[in-house]
Design a protein around this nucleic acid. Structure first.
Lengths: 151, 151
DNA sequence: CTAACTGCAAATTCTTTGCATTAGT
DNA sequence: ACTAATGCAAAGAATTTGCAGTTAG
């Protein structure tokens, strides 16, 4: 249980998918960084060693992983989506974000999650009842200015 | 105090801006709906009566209003930004969002805000101290499936 | 084998920019 | 009059699509 990723390959296959070289590489890239990578970030990394792999493949692979639930997809407002492996793989803790609206710096914080969790669960329960939604996920983001940009 | 919008015109002028026809129309469009409009939504509405006003003007006006703090800008993940007049104009209450990942339906909820507020304030305080940020704003969004899409 | 995936190029979509003209103040 | 803002057309940037060739199962 050290690594719950063991089954991503199985998940791909069981959906009729194939375990191709680009998919393996892209998964590994995501799995070896705590950062939120954009499609272009991934492409840049991959391109150094595998110049044959194209940007469309990166987009398609990220979408595939997103659809089977292995990726979180964020928009921090800088004009492109960013991805990270999902939290349920216990390698990464669930976290929220603190975003500098000037320089784009992003801080993942986990510090206050515990206090928040109880309330979040309660809120999810009440919301799902009142609005008849099945809630799968949430994004909490705080926006402001980082120490440098505050001047 | 019924309508705090009284001063938006003043705010525009005091920044060296001009009170043009497109700006007045666009402000009124935003002011007469509780919805989250995209630039194209605004353009579509405006275009029926004022076909001369172009999409770039809409984008520029939205950006202007955003910069002087009269607009909130959201990305719900459907590929374009959406805008609404800011909460501090007491016409709209501060609210969070519930988003259907299948059909894109968005529910604004204000119900649990009160309970959340205390925690949010506390979290903002602790985060701003720990990470030395000045926090101006936050976005909380829950994602899931609405009653129709749950099937 | 054969259907899914890739790689390339071209298309789409949303948003921004350059510039000559118009219109607030 | 002065200069910000507009309207048009065209450019940019991120992402998606079509399709012929490749490859995993």
């Amino acid at each position: 249980m050290q690594d719950k990723h063991y089954d991503w390959k199985e998940k791909i296959r069981s959906n009729g998918g194939r375990l191709t070289t680009p998919r393996k590489i892209i998964f590994n890239i995501l799995n070896s960084t705590p950062k939120h990578l954009s499609a272009e970030d991934v492409y840049f990394i991959i391109h150094k060693k595998n110049p044959k792999i194209g940007l469309p493949t990166v987009y398609r692979t990220l979408d595939t992983l997103f659809k089977i639930g292995y990726l979180n997809k964020f928009d921090f407002g800088d004009g492109h989506f960013r991805y990270e492996l999902s939290d349920f793989q216990n390698k990464h803790q669930h976290h929220h974000h603190l975003i500098c609206t000037k320089c784009g710096k992003i801080v993942d914080y986990t510090d206050f999650i515990e206090k928040e969790t109880k309330l979040v669960n309660l809120t999810e329960k009440e919301l799902s009842k009142k609005y008849n939604f099945r809630i799968d996920n949430h994004i909490f983001q705080f926006y402001g200015l980082c120490n440098k940009c505050k001047k």
